[in-house]
Design a protein around this nucleic acid. Sequence first.
DNA 1: ACTGTGACACTGG
DNA 2: ACCAGTGCCACAG
Length: 109
Amino acid sequence: MNPMRPKILATIRKIPRGGVSTYGAVARAAGYPGGARRVASVLRGSRDLPWHRVLGAGGEIKLTGDAAFEQRFRLQSEGVSFRGRRVDMSQHEYRFGKTKPSFRKRVSR
DNA sequence: ACTGTGACACTGG
DNA sequence: ACCAGTGCCACAG
């Protein structure tokens, strides 16, 4: 039906405990460059996912209010360290094996 | 078909 | 560091 959702789910599940990734990176790894918002959407509607390991670009928590606090708490409890409001990506970002190049229309540049 | 809505990303100022 | 503007695109109404 929607080939995109399962791929994104599978990708998210690859992020190991103590590791993190970003909406954009997950989208690219799933074969949908530019689909960051799709990743967020999937996270919202699915359960039993390491949802707290997905962050905004630069390691920023994009949730708001209590949810944001919970995400930070969960991450810290599995050993992820922060630098101010963001996760220290250089130390915790999980790298997916570069797969599916897939195209993306070049934006005016 | 059209419009509004996002747990987004990137560039510029 | 913050904010505005723009691109993106599935989904719901």
